[in-house]
């Protein structure tokens, strides 16, 4: 499996990269971690004429809290997220997710931003960012703009990113006190995409949910934000009956297709089971019990 020929640039600055994208338009592809792009190129399912390798641009790899957000740079690797004590302490949903993407070797190169920008509904971070209410920063010729993650995905492998824009940063709102999250994924084996996975981020106050985010992975043509299930939680006590009802609704919001990972019924049921389990885990984490 050999990729088709292409021209290659390795810009040293963001502006250089953006002008290359402007120059080559739809013929260009951005190479960051490459763990989705290069396999597609080897299979010749992708054959960009020009590859813009952004790995040489300084200052794009970071994980830090600032301005009310956890900010993650375009070149931050999954392994770095997984290794971050800050993330493990304050963003368990993100830590869970980074730990189940691909396999340990893939995670050393794969980036969180690439996982989002590739917009594969089977990818894990889209659901997580939907649950977290994150936003992304797109930088192009006219400067940077912020896009709410719920407006980012437009279809299978498509986003609102313009061909000359680069996803430069991810912004996750800092959690309020009493928050907890979890990502639960059923995969056929390590390294597989999810048969179904559920991301949950909740905040508790006085034993009731004050906010809830639920994202669903690989159970529809796009990552799904389970808004009705979220609504079924907010304002309700964090008890088993609430959880069960929200999980039931989340399953309704899933729109899976049958494939080698299972039937429609199976996947829908997984969403229900995983939503309930993720909520229970998120609650224990919110209470500081886990």
């Amino acid at each position: 499996m050999i990729p088709a020929s292409f021209d290659y640039s390795s810009p040293k600055t963001l502006s250089e990269a953006i002008s290359l994208l402007q120059q080559h338009g739809a013929d260009a592809k951005i190479l960051s971690g490459g763990q989705s792009l290069i396999p597609l190129m080897k299979l010749r399912m992708a054959a960009p004429k020009h590859v813009v390798d952004i790995n040489g641009i300084d200052g794009l790899a970071y994980i830090k809290e600032s301005g009310g957000f956890l900010t993650i740079g375009a070149l931050t690797r999954e392994a770095d997220v997984d290794a971050s004590q800050l993330v493990h302490d304050r963003y368990p949903l993100l830590a869970d997710t980074a730990g189940v993407i691909g396999d340990p070797l893939v995670r050393n190169l794969a980036t969180v931003a690439g996982n989002l920008a590739h917009a594969d509904p089977a990818n894990d971070h889209p659901a997580t960012m939907l649950a977290l209410g994150a936003s992304v920063v797109a930088t192009g010729p006219k400067g940077a703009r912020t896009i709410a993650i719920s407006d980012f995905f437009t279809g299978i492998f498509t986003t609102t990113l313009a061909p000359d824009e680069i996803l430069t940063e991810i912004r996750v709102p800092m959690p309020q006190a009493g928050s907890g999250g979890a990502y639960l994924k059923v995969e056929r084996k390590v390294g597989d995409f999810a048969a179904a996975a559920v991301a949950v981020q909740i905040t508790l106050d006085g034993g009731s949910f004050t906010s809830a985010g639920i994202g669903l992975t690989n159970v529809g043509p796009m990552p799904i934000k389970a808004t009705r299930a979220e609504k079924a939680l907010v304002g309700k006590p964090a008890v088993e009956s609430t959880i069960v009802e929200a999980a039931r609704i989340a399953a309704e919001e899933a729109d899976p297709a049958e494939d080698l990972r299972g039937s429609v019924d199976y996947k829908r049921s997984l969403v229900r089971v995983l939503t309930a389990r993720a909520l229970r885990l998120a609650i224990t984490r919110a209470k500081g019990e886990h």
């Binding site: 059923v186 056929r188 048969a195 990972r261 299972g262 039937s263 019924d265 199976y266 049921s269 089971v273």
Partner: peptide, 17 residues
């Protein structure tokens, strides 16, 4: 014996979670 096969049986027998 894959998870979907087992789950389908659990469901048929009324014991799936």
């Amino acid at each position: 014996i894959t998870p979907p096969k087992v789950w389908a049986l659990l469901k048929e027998k009324g014991v799936a979670e």
